[in-house]
């Protein structure tokens, strides 16, 4: 346990020093504030840019539009930035050889993997929490009185999918070599999961559904319970991937 906390602290300090923390917090802050504003201002902006005399009628935006922006942005740009920023977290240290010293001094190998996952998960949780909080505050001001149902669970699903992707990234980084090998493998894994949806019935259990259907959840188009199977698959899958990462990393030549 001591190894774990020492390495976790070192890892978090490194994120601050290498601007990873700044990028993620800034990006998710910007998203959090942009989502409601885009929803609110789109009709005005369109009206401004329309050639004279032309009028189009757009339904009055609601809080749901604001959250639609949140889920769209987090799912696309947010997750991409997250993976990009963390892509070199393991490979960078292996290629620079900074781990050798620590490992020969007795740092346990599983502590490296588990602490790295813990640190990434912590930063991701803060980022997505911050973004959701800002969207919530702005939405409450800009769209007073509008409620959105099942919101907390929808945000949780989004968070869980991010946590799953980080586990994929870490496992992929232990297997693949090079700075971008892990990222490439993660991309392939996501494509594979998306393709899996062709199989009838797979959608229900697919971790991708957690992100892709979060908007339907917030719009109340589906009930919470529809995503329970996907949650039940994703949590053990993420833990399993971390287990694989530990096993592979133990045998890895550094």
């Amino acid at each position: 346990m001591k190894h774990y906390f020492v390495f976790l602290k070192k890892e978090l300090m490194e994120y601050a020093r290498t601007y990873k923390l700044l990028i993620l917090l800034a990006v998710f802050t910007i998203f959090g504030m942009t989502n409601p504003l885009i929803a609110k201002l789109t009709p005005d902006l369109l009206a401004n840019f329309m050639p004279g005399g032309m009028t189009i009628t757009i339904p009055e935006p609601t809080a749901l539009d604001s959250w639609a922006q949140f889920f769209k942005n987090t799912q696309q740009m947010g997750l991409i930035v997250l993976l990009l920023v963390f892509s070199s977290v393991l490979a960078g240290e292996i290629s620079k050889g900074t781990l050798i010293n620590l490992l020969t001094k007795g740092l346990m190998r599983q502590a490296v993997i588990v602490a790295k996952y813990g640190a990434m998960l912590l930063v991701w949780s803060i980022s997505v929490g911050l973004s959701a909080f800002l969207t919530w505050v702005y939405t409450a001001y800009l769209f007073p009185g509008d409620g959105v149902s099942q919101l907390v669970f929808a945000v949780f699903c989004m968070w869980l999918f991010g946590a799953f992707l980080l586990a994929v990234l870490l496992a992929a980084s232990t297997v693949a070599g090079g700075n971008y090998g892990g990222l490439l493998l993660t991309g392939l894994a996501v494509v594979a999961l998306l393709t899996l949806n062709i199989v009838p019935g797979a959608l229900k259990y697919n971790p991708v559904s957690l992100a892709s259907r979060s908007m339907e959840l917030a719009a109340n188009a589906i009930d919470k319970s529809v995503l329970y199977p996907a949650v039940a698959v994703t949590i053990p899958a993420a833990l399993g991937l971390i287990g694989i990462a530990v096993l592979v990393f133990r045998r890895k030549q550094i």
Binding site: Y19, A26, T29, I30, M33, L37, L142
Partner: peptide, 18 residues
Amino acid sequence: YWLFLLPLIIAQFVLMIT
């Protein structure tokens, strides 16, 4: 909406300056 836009512009600016 300048009051809502201001923090957004500041955040962008902080990133750029850093």
